[in-house]
């Protein structure tokens, strides 16, 4: 983490808050990246009907930093699965980055997940005995990217999260915070429309957790990446700009955060890395 901070400190002196304000969070004029209307997910267990989601409307615009909050059993995981195209709603319409998702078959959903969504999980879900760079390359393999370009883009993504000096380390040789940063690089590397982070700090100590939140905030501010957290932790919500509250399968609140906690003020990502991420061949 020290290395990241030094790297960021060093570069931030040169470029400053270059992108700050250019891609403001929650800009209502920006194109909606998520448009979900009347989403319902109904399970049938014997004669009992369980409504995990019961008519949920969610609209999230490009560049937003949002938390979906709710206690366990509220339906937030079901909502994340549907927003992440891992699951299909029983009813309702869902448009992700302009694509009507509810009409797609399994293979098409896999392609959408590959192109438009970056997942970050509570337990990192890295491949053990596999180097950081190989882990980050995985989504590009399924996207059919050629090996050399894959390697370049994975390297750029790892540099972007401050792990440029850990490319060859195996996942199990890294600390929890470093592992989660590899996972974030893996989510970034395909330049997705949204990053879905499911309790990303749940398995981390508070210091590493703060560093991860810092990374998310920087990504959002500096690159305009849309990031959606799914959490029950109010502190995570405090790091975002908008909180959608969910309970019993229904949305019960949608508020802007006025007293946002900035996990790492005055830190920016190195410009060269931003450029690599922006201009890496698609």
């Amino acid at each position: 983490m020290v290395a990241l901070n030094q790297e960021i400190d060093h570069v931030s002196n040169v470029i400053g808050p270059r992108l700050n304000g250019q891609l403001p969070a929650g800009d209502a004029n920006a194109a909606p990246v998520i448009e979900a209307h009347g989403i319902a997910k109904i399970y049938r267990i014997g004669d009992i009907e369980v409504r995990a989601l019961d008519g949920v409307d969610v609209t999230i615009h490009r560049g937003e930093l949002t938390a979906i909050m709710g206690p366990s059993g509220s339906g937030k995981s079901t909502l994340m699965n549907i927003l992440g195209c891992l699951d299909q709603p029983t009813r309702g319409a869902y448009k992700l980055d302009g694509v009507d998702v509810e009409k797609l078959n399994d293979d098409q959903l896999a392609a959408i997940r590959n192109k438009k969504i970056g997942f970050v999980f509570q337990s990192f879900n890295l491949l053990r005995r596999t180097s950081a760079i190989d882990n980050v390359e995985q989504p590009l393999i399924y996207a059919g990217v050629k090996p050399r370009e894959r390697r370049e883009r994975a390297k750029a993504a790892l540099e972007a999260v401050g792990l440029g000096n850990r490319l060859k380390h195996h996942a199990n040789e890294l600390s929890g915070g470093q592992q989660q940063r590899v996972a974030i690089a893996r989510a970034l590397v395909t330049k997705p429309a949204i990053i879905l982070a499911d309790e990303p700090t749940g398995n981390l100590d508070s210091k590493s957790g703060a560093e991860i939140m810092c990374l998310f905030q920087r990504l959002n501010e500096d690159t305009g990446m849309t990031v959606i957290f799914v959490t029950h932790d109010p502190r995570i919500a405090q790091h975002t700009r908008r909180v959608i509250r969910i309970a019993d399968g229904k949305i019960i609140g949608d508020d802007a955060i006025t007293d946002q906690i900035i996990a790492c003020p005055d830190k920016a990502l190195p410009e060269s890395i931003l450029e690599k991420l922006e201009h890496a061949p698609a």
Partner: peptide
């Protein structure tokens, strides 16, 4: 199992 889940989440088709 988790590796398979992850691979599917990051875009692996069943055939892959």
């Amino acid at each position: 199992t988790r590796e398979i889940g992850l691979r599917k989440a990051i875009g692996a088709r069943s055939s892959a």
